[in-house]
Design a protein around this nucleic acid. Structure first.
Length: 109
DNA sequence: TAGTTGACGACGG
DNA sequence: TCCGTCGCCAACT
């Protein structure tokens, strides 16, 4: 079911293309959650989901990997991003503006 | 039932 | 430009 905000967050996160990232604020704003912390809350529990949610593609507005400590290994988030071709330096994505993805209404029907 | 927590962001000094 | 404070609100204890 997808009646709660968590499922909306998961669905939105799964739409993020490989090699792109999104921010908590953008997702919160797009879904009308009002608070970016809500997105963090949802993603905190996303590891239990099937299929998995690419939570590593969500960063804070400065591009920092603020959620890395919630992965099994704090370096996993960086590793996953680098495997997708995203440059990460000092726990922060490089050229954030260039790889930033924004959800579109038509993506969700 | 009520208080606390939290992967954030906006704003003011 | 940088840093500290506050608001947001669902989930947890």
């Amino acid at each position: 079911m997808k009646n709660n905000y968590q499922d909306l967050v998961y669905e939105c996160t799964r739409k993020i293309p490989r090699g792109k990232v999104c921010t908590y604020g953008i997702i919160a704003d797009f879904l009308g959650l009002g608070s970016a912390r809500m997105v963090g809350w949802a993603l905190n529990k996303s590891f239990q989901m099937d299929p998995p949610v690419p939570a590593h593609r969500v960063v804070n507005r400065k591009g920092e990997l603020s959620g890395r400590n919630h992965f099994a290994d704090p370096t996993m988030m960086q590793t996953l991003l680098e495997e997708e071709g995203i440059k990460v330096k000092q726990d922060k994505v490089m050229q954030l503006e260039a790889i930033l993805w924004r959800p579109q209404i038509e993506d969700f029907d």
